[in-house]
Design a protein around this nucleic acid. Structure first.
Length: 430
RNA sequence: GUGAGCGUAGCUCAGCUGGUCAGAGCACCGGACUGUGGCUCCGGUGGUCGGGGGUUCAAAUCCCCUCGCUCACCCCA
């Protein structure tokens, strides 16, 4: 394109109507569902001290290593656009002494996150997450309730094909023992691993488990799972979560290869994947982080939470939900002639106050063109206002789905609108 | 950070062994149907062929550079 035209930064996108309606609808459902589980919304800054993410997400992670939007402010302080939200919530919990309130706290959030990555399908430099955190409860029941709220959210949107993957990451004390176990098991077959995994064998054996190279997968299948080596406390915890899920009838699969990319997770970790998404199929990721708040200098308070990728979610939204949101159930008021135009604004205001969504035709196009547009844009009905109608104090209303029309007195329009059947039922045979 | 592909009307693309190559469909506006939609027919608006440079009598078409986009790896939402 022309060099002089300013374009949006790489990895960002403009959300345009009508798609923004889908986003609003999804966010509304999230707020309703999470609030109904006792959640309250929390809003924290979009940028934080860089140190917060280094200490919480983990120095060795890719996120901190190469994906953060870090910059110095005018006083030279290092700030970073948040790459995820849990760290900010934990910081806010400590800073605002939320521990002084009755526990636990269920906090949900919606908003943009930032990671400096190469663009790819389902991956953006600015993306939005919807998340829920339960802080102040360390029971398996807390994890199960969190998963129930998440599940309910997806059900409410009409999803039927999502899979929940669950695993036990063990406790931090188990980690060293586990890494040693992997090394012992795989070192003899070191030569068969891909070059990345050979390096991982030294640096982070855990990651070998979710390597995508087929040969590595075969070898990794023989290695012990984290759960096989983990201590009793974490195994009992995750077993408890599973028992609750089974009792509730929430389907999930136990995936021993599931590993998460943030350092603070322990015990329960999970992902939700959509078969409709290709390479980046993870719609939601989460887990337990009982040491995070203490590690950030706060009291020893346990937490568990998840984050849903809103961009990916909207992309695979069930058609039924989308159709319902995108149908434009509004009345299109078309004035014909100068006198009608004067009256139309006033009528529209009255009807809008009466609860009718009214869009006024304001371009002066012909009635024929207006009807064509009404049809194309999915209006429920058209109200036509010309000299004849002005004289009779009525509008000619046309039910676009049924194809019939009638005269309705100005004052009766809201009642007429309320009595209109849904478009689907009114559809003409033909 | 690594590798591959693509950039022609608002959208999807054809044209790409250089010479009616500036086109089609959809969309948009209008007409046939002068106050009535969805079908059909007709007409119209709209493009520095991403940008710059080069080769040539001649470049959308070949070469170089650049910008942008996409996909995969890595990793994640």
């Amino acid at each position: 394109m022309e060099g002089s035209v300013i374009q949006r930064p790489r990895g960002t996108r403009d959300l345009l109507p009508p798609e923004t309606r889908l986003w609003l609808a999804v966010e509304t459902v999230a707020r309703e569902v999470f609030a109904s589980f006792g959640g309250e919304e929390i809003r924290t800054p979009v940028f934080e001290a860089t140190e917060l993410f280094v200490r919480s997400v983990g120095e060795g992670t890719d996120i901190v290593h190469k994906e953060m939007y870090t910059f110095p402010d005018r006083k030279g302080r290092s700030l970073t656009l948040r790459p995820e939200m849990t760290a900010g919530v934990a910081r806010a919990w400590i800073e605002n002494r939320l521990g002084d309130r009755s526990q636990p706290l269920r906090l949900f959030y919606l908003g943009p996150m930032f990671r400096y990555e190469r663009m790819q399908h389902g991956r953006y430099r600015q993306f939005s997450q919807i998340g829920l955190e339960i802080i102040g409860a360390d029971t398996p029941l807390a994890d199960a309730e969190l998963l129930a709220a998440m599940h309910e959210f997806f059900v409410r949107l009409g999803f039927t094909d999502l899979q929940i993957h669950l695993n036990n990451l063990g406790d931090p004390e188990d980690r060293a023992r586990y890494q040693e176990g992997i090394r012992v098991a795989l070192t003899p077959r070191r030569a068969e691993l891909c070059s990345d995994c050979q390096r991982r064998l030294e640096e982070n054996p855990l990651r070998i488990l979710d390597c995508k190279v087929p040969a590595c997968q075969v070898i990794a299948a023989d290695a012990p799972g984290v759960d096989d080596v983990a201590g009793d406390p974490s195994r009992q915890h995750v077993a408890g979560v599973e028992a609750h899920l089974q009792a509730l009838g929430i389907p999930y699969v136990r995936n021993r290869r599931l590993v998460r990319g943030l350092d603070y997770y322990l015990r329960t970790v999970f992902e939700v994947v959509s078969p409709q998404l290709g390479t980046n199929a993870v719609l939601c990721g989460g887990g337990r982080y009982d040491r995070l708040i203490a590690d950030l200098g706060g009291p020893a308070v346990p937490g568990v939470g998840f984050a849903i990728g809103e961009d990916r979610l909207v992309e695979v939204l069930p058609a039924r939900f989308k159709d319902a949101v995108l149908a434009r159930a509004a009345l299109y008021l078309v004035p014909m002639g100068a006198a009608a135009e004067n009256r139309a604004l006033e009528l529209a205001r009255g009807w809008i106050r009466g609860g009718v969504p009214v869009e006024l035709e304001i371009t002066g196009r012909s009635l024929k063109a207006a009807l064509k547009r009404a049809d194309r844009d999915g209006f429920r009905a058209v109200a036509m206002l010309g000299d004849d109608e002005l004289k009779a104090k009525t509008v000619t209303v046309r039910d676009l789905a049924a194809g019939n029309q009638s005269a309705v007195p100005f004052a009766d329009l809201p009642a007429w609108w309320q009595a209109l059947p849904p478009a689907r039922e009114a559809a003409r045979p033909e």
